[in-house]
């Protein structure tokens, strides 16, 4: 099952510079675990304690997965997943 995953610049060190990679899995969690097998270290940049990191946005076909089922969001063949770190900060 192939799902295209778009990788942000900051994480391309794990994908040999590739902007997009393919992976598989029935859920987002499985997909990220699958990516980890070929791109060691990437999972921990996205997941912390079994949940998506607060300041990493993951989109399934343009929808923020926080509004779906988060890391348990179901995936199907041909889906597109985009990972984008939040642009955030402030004096706090």
């Amino acid at each position: 099952m192939a799902i295209e995953v778009r990788i942000p610049t900051i994480l391309r060190t794990y994908t040999g510079g590739e902007k997009a990679v393919e992976g598989g899995g029935a859920t987002l969690a499985e997909l990220l675990a699958d990516l980890e097998t070929r791109h060691a270290g990437i999972q921990a940049r996205i997941v912390d304690g079994g949940e998506l990191r607060r300041f990493v946005n993951v989109y399934l076909n343009d929808e923020d997965v926080r509004f779906l089922d988060g890391i348990n969001t179901k995936l199907t063949d041909g889906d597109n997943v985009t990972i984008l770190p939040a642009v955030a900060g402030g004096m706090a």
Binding site: N57, Y59, D64, A86, V87, A88, G89, G90, A92
Partner: peptide, 11 residues
């Protein structure tokens, strides 16, 4: 004291 781009706007 904080800013964050809206997630849809960011995409």
């Amino acid at each position: 004291t904080f800013y964050e781009f809206d997630s849809q706007d960011l995409l």
